[in-house]
């Protein structure tokens, strides 16, 4: 699955999508007139305060929510068609591993559901465990692993069936900063190896700047995009890049974007 990085084919395109939840207190505009194009192989971060619709947008891409207006297409299909073709690996903030299955058994779960044959499953499990640096832990149960390792296992589970698009909703939000740094580095490494398109929701400016090729700054009430920043940073990013002037300038831009969205309150 060798993919050229500079094909720049749009995989996800949103045109003027809005998503309104009807609640007892009246309609909530989670997204309003959001347009965005994500190219193949992009690493896109969504950043903004809570209620800005970043998670809702990610969920809409994964067909877990349906936009109430506008068009959203994924690889030329509707999100739901893409879901049926198993185009997404989704990673949540909590690992959500089954306590009654081993790590290998947990990774095997989507493969079993999708009907992969046993030898193929075993091969894939070994490959993704290696990819997230958990080789040798397949036989352990989730409670025997640390939080960071459990989250890596859940990423392995999302990678196992070769979905083209990896959607991550604050996957490292519950982890401490040291573990987070390591996992960020590992995630970049994994992204380079696999060439997947990644959508990543976060609260952290350094995390967004460090990881992304494209940073989408959002603001609440109604949820909308205030800025889209294309990162000039190279794809090879050692952790030390965070001390360079380019990185700091980029972080500055993101911060300004966030402030703009907040100007009225």
């Amino acid at each position: 699955m060798e993919r050229s990085i500079d094909t720049m084919q749009p995989v996800i395109s949103a045109e003027n999508i809005s998503l309104t939840f009807q609640t007892a207190d009246g309609p909530v505009h989670a997204l309003k007139n959001v347009s965005l194009t994500i190219n193949q192989g992009d690493f896109v971060s969504f950043i903004g305060p809570s209620g800005c619709g970043k998670t809702t947008f990610l969920r809409a891409i994964a067909a877990l929510e349906t936009p109430t207006a506008g068009t959203l297409s994924v690889a030329g299909m509707t999100p739901d068609q893409a879901r049926r073709r198993r185009a997404y690996g989704y990673v949540f903030q909590a690992p959500g591993l089954y306590p009654w299955r081993t790590i290998a058994g947990n990774i095997s779960l989507p493969l079993e559901i999708m009907g992969f044959a046993r030898p193929d499953r075993q091969q894939r499990i070994a490959r993704v465990l290696d990819l997230v640096d958990l080789a040798g832990f397949g036989g352990k149960y989730p409670w025997q692993l640390s939080g960071g390792m459990q989250q890596r296992a859940s990423i392995a589970r999302a990678l196992a069936f070769d979905a083209d698009i990896l959607l991550m909703d604050e996957p490292f939000g519950a982890l401490d900063e040291i573990v987070r740094d390591r996992l960020n580095e590992a995630l970049l490494d994994l992204w380079k190896k696999t060439g997947k398109t990644i959508g990543f929701v976060t609260h952290s400016i350094p995390e967004a700047v460090y990881l992304s090729t494209k940073i989408v700054v959002m603001s609440p009430r109604p949820g909308r995009i205030t800025r889209v920043i294309d990162s000039p940073l190279p794809r090879d990013r050692p952790l030390e890049i965070r001390d360079t002037p380019e990185f700091i300038a980029l972080a500055q831009q993101v911060r300004e974007g966030l402030r703009e969205g907040h100007s009225y309150d």
């Binding site: 969920r59 994964a62 067909a63 877990l64 879901r83 049926r84 198993r86 997404y88 690996g89 989704y90 949540f92 909590a94 959500g96 779960l109 989507p110 559901i113 999708m114 069936f161």
Partner: peptide
């Protein structure tokens, strides 16, 4: 909801 969403994203049948 998260675990059901995961199942949904894998396009699992109701029996699965």
């Amino acid at each position: 909801a998260m675990q059901l969403d995961l199942m949904h994203s894998w396009n699992a049948s109701r029996a699965q």
